[in-house]
Design a protein around this nucleic acid. Sequence first.
DNA 1: CATAATTTGTCCGTATGTATC
DNA 2: GGATACATACGGACAAATTAT
Lengths: 241, 241
Amino acid sequence: MPDVVFDRIKQGKLAEVIAAQIRGEIRSGSLALGDRLPPERELIEQLGVSRATVREALMLLEADGFIQVRAGRHGGAYVTSPKLERLATILDVILAVEQTTTDQLLEARSLMEPLAVRLATARADESDFERIQGSIDRAAEHLDAPDIVAEESARFHVLVAESTHNGVISALTATTQQLIYSRAFTAFGTETAATLRAHQRILDAMRARDAEAAVRRMVRHVDAFRVVLDAPRSIELGSET
Amino acid sequence: MPDVVFDRIKQGKLAEVIAAQIRGEIRSGSLALGDRLPPERELIEQLGVSRATVREALMLLEADGFIQVRAGRHGGAYVTSPKLERLATILDVILAVEQTTTDQLLEARSLMEPLAVRLATARADESDFERIQGSIDRAAEHLDAPDIVAEESARFHVLVAESTHNGVISALTATTQQLIYSRAFTAFGTETAATLRAHQRILDAMRARDAEAAVRRMVRHVDAFRVVLDAPRSIELGSET
DNA sequence: CATAATTTGTCCGTATGTATC
DNA sequence: GGATACATACGGACAAATTAT
């Protein structure tokens, strides 16, 4: 038989290997946000693969929002900031296949948000408060436009999560939040005034650095939404003794 | 020649349009799990595009786990269920770009896991317990193989999350868990015996339906891991009054 | 405003690899 | 092991888009 042929191991498809390689350079920071990748024809030379393969790799990265490809004179592949929405899109499909109900989404939120608001109450700075207040105010000014109110109401929870100054928590919260409002959008809108009042009261507690009050009001708020959707209330979760 | 040619409007890239089209047929159920798509050459005819375009579309779908493409005699694109790992892959890059530290991952876990174990203690059934015990046992049997211990240790947390019977919680937990172990793999392995003991004690509490004990032990367990990584301990989060 | 330059978008033909019968 | 059916990959060509001049 032949000697040893170390290199030709072929781990999966070429395009995916190349995509992983470029993704790794974005991850490690070698490719910063806004950087331009070499044009396809240069990548062909550097990587030693065909143009179709390069294009497939770039396509994969673009689908995940890691790069954006434009045609034309100064076109090419530019590193861009990945969009959180991709997470929601993928999770949505996974949940659909596993026949996850909307109530399970709401239950997950009922678990996470009180903790997030407790942490946020401790860590939020003045600019966080201003962003949240701004969102509430914008919703209040457009009480006649249900879509704006719904959008800002969703944003409220994301902003609270971002006030934890923990990227993981805010990313996961934003993802579940997006799914909830994409599914429950029709159900929303019946209780706009009460929702905004609840948001304001939560923010007030955060500003007063009263974590317990913030948590209490958040629990009541998210549970109220589940009632609206005819979902079972949160039970057996209360950490209160 | 042809009557109306509705389709030729060019909204974005062709491959993405085609991918969306097929994805839609999977979602709607026209294509069920396990079905085989027509071979590339037939798709070329049906869609009126080139092979490269079809391949790019199939590649996008495969990346998201909608289909799986095999070569060979009865090869082709088969409809399959999307993979959860995609979430971790994307979140990983997002967190890296936003310069999220590993400690933020651990903090997020310190928040979520105690709640998950509380819920799991209430809802887990006998088969859940057996799965968790099986994971612990397998790790115990391979104390000399660090990679197996690490894998099963990660699986423990995922299995606990799955015992909540809430798809959202288990998906999010599995994602964070995967990221933690992919980052902290080297640091792991120093405390294998203690880790397995902690896992066993948590499971015992769950079996006894003692939620408070399970939560207490889980908090201590996840915090201990943060200490190993020289990360600040979890403070200010305790919901105990 | 038009033309050219640059780069992606799409297509075709062909060759090779791979799994099944 | 040979034939078959299929994906995988390569190379070349032209069309379309975008922007600079």
